[in-house]
Design a binder for these strands. Structure first.
Lengths: 334, 334
DNA sequence: CTCGCGTGTGTAAGCGCTTCCACTGCCCGG
DNA sequence: CCGGGCAGTGGAAGCGCTTACACACGCGAG
């Protein structure tokens, strides 16, 4: 971009750069005649102020960052969508960083931090020391899908109550032999499994140990192959992708869902609605999660003090057919 | 971010800022003792160079932008994933901009352009004049999922041959009454429909006019309700989401897929594999599309001259059950 | 006829960095 | 014993902008 600079505009308009700046931003008084001269010069040179110069002088970037572990699957895309939308409305650009397993993440994140006015960080994407270091440096930060770290805000969706409601529904179906698919040390999921365990306990049902697996269809498939030969009534999965994988495994093993084994997911991704059997799951307000994070971050950037508080967004239990047979009236449109 | 500056590091280390810079970047000679003093000062102050200062001095941003119409649905997320991955490996940050229907897009894009070294633009997201203006200003640009605009590179996936292969397959199934769901003025899709029309023509089959609809499940559902009462054998859809919607509409109308009507998609999103019937579709290498764009852009930024060339990536015809009944051997794992 | 003030404009000081250029020692070959 | 060269370092310009401050001018009030 060999763009023209404010100096060339000033020269062409026959004024000083200060006047050009004032005319363009509407700060300070500028006579109508001058304003017009500047306007013409800007047009002729196709001048757009360099963001670098502006940011350096203003001391702000007008940009936000967001850090997530991976962009695959529908989950992060949806959240990002809500985030970008609000950020754009607030006049801020969005920088994304997907950490995956990549090495050198701390350096990359610190570099990102010098490009933005604030950062949204997903779940356990970054080590706690790094979060502390960033927060201590005064960088506004919002945590997503986890509890607030000291010096930040946070937003996640509800876990325990929904998990309990789902478990209760499954018990009402008559299911007694439960299995859990998907690792459990991560914040959100462990919260759900804890609630499920409590509920099962209340009903005198054996509490299974979660079978760890990656949160992908393949991961669910592998987990399903390990779990299903154990003659379970129902497999509760950490998310919808895992559930889809478990259903695939069930098919492979000649088991019918939900007649032989029920399966539930979490998130309500698009495929959950279209799969057969359609997936019983818990809908998270993904876009709203992103949008809320963007708004919280904006408040912090505007100067609000971090409250170390976690907002909790409500979820919806979505009953479809994968959890057992329902009387028609009870079923949602598939 | 009240970060420390290179001046504070220099003072603490007892050297000049020039030396600090050289020590940190490894340009120019620095004695081991000095290097160590600088290292310690950097550590103590937790110094990370301001990207703003670096970029302004270097005259480059080490960042790429990407502009797409919308982030909803799996399509863009996957492409973005491939793009971000390669960009990150090349040491570049990624700025995203989703235009949606928002007003003031040209201004926003121009602002974005001053934050990056190069831009990837999706399909027909931006008006041609704007593309020309950006290209003329010397901004390296890569077009995605469309033909190259003058002064740019482009990458898309193959359309005509795959569309023909799909049509041939459907004809072999015995289908004769074709319908097309999904608008057709957009580049990629119109290319496919043209190829389908040619193929049908060769076989003496009536060429239907595409029924316009948004590329969403809802759009497909609406289109399906309009199309299906017309007693068609097969509905070819602009993408998988539309196809899923048409299947929903078929169900609503009491039609069985594929026995009463066959349905095909395009893209091979996750839901295509898990829906029942599983969707016959054409797999686009979405991540590879993004990755290729990132690499092309990097070459342009490195100084390569734009060739106005369009790379075409190969697709895969994915035969599943929504297009008709196959002998078991012919079917892909669902 | 002044003084004071508001309007309109220019000058210049940063913002945080990179890098060209100049300078100081010191070592080594002649 | 001397000059050339080089390792090591600092000074300062410059990247493109915003804005505090200074200044000039014209006007109405005293």
């Amino acid at each position: 971009m060999s763009d023209s600079t404010i100096y060339e505009v000033a020269r062409l308009a026959g004024v000083s750069i200060a006047t050009v700046s004032r005319a363009l931003r509407g700060t300070g008084p500028v006579s109508a005649a001058t304003r017009e001269k500047v306007r013409r010069a800007v047009e002729e040179l196709r001048f757009t102020p360099s963001r670098l110069g502006v940011s350096l002088a203003e001391g702000r970037h007008a940009a936000n960052g967001i850090v997530f572990p991976d962009l695959s699957g529908p989950y992060f895309g949806e959240v990002l969508l809500g985030y970008e939308e609000v950020a754009a409305d607030l006049g801020r650009s969005v920088l994304i960083l997907s950490t995956r397993d990549r090495a050198g993440v701390p350096e990359t994140v610190k570099d990102l931090a010098t490009r933005v006015d604030g950062l949204v960080v997903f779940g356990r994407t970054l080590p706690d020391e790094l979060l502390t270091e960033l927060a201590d440096s005064g960088l506004p930060m919002v945590m997503l899908a986890r509890e607030a770290h000291p010096g930040t805000e946070a937003v996640r969706s509800e876990n325990a109550d929904s998990a309990e409601a789902l478990a209760v529904h499954l018990i009402a179906h008559g299911h007694r032999a439960f299995a859990l698919a998907g690792g459990h040390d991560e914040g959100d999921v462990s919260r759900r499994w804890t609630a499920v365990a409590r509920t099962l306990g209340h009903h005198g049902i054996d509490v299974p140990r979660p079978v760890e697996c990656p949160y992908t269809v393949e991961g669910g498939y592998e987990a399903g192959l390990r779990i299903l030969p154990g003659r379970k009534d129902v497999v509760m999965c950490a998310d919808d992708q895992v559930a889809l994988g478990v259903i695939l495994a069930a098919e492979e093993l000649g088991l019918r869902v939900p007649e032989d084994v029920a399966v539930t997911g979490w998130d309500d991704i698009m495929a959950a609605r279209h799969s057969r059997p359609a997936l019983t799951t818990v809908r998270q307000p993904l876009r709203e999660l992103g949008a809320t994070a963007a708004r919280l971050l904006d408040e912090l950037i505007a100067g609000a003090e971090p409250t170390n508080t976690t907002r909790v967004l409500a979820t919806d239990l979505v009953i479809r057919s994968s959890c057992g047979v329902h009387p028609p009236a009870q079923q949602e449109e598939p």
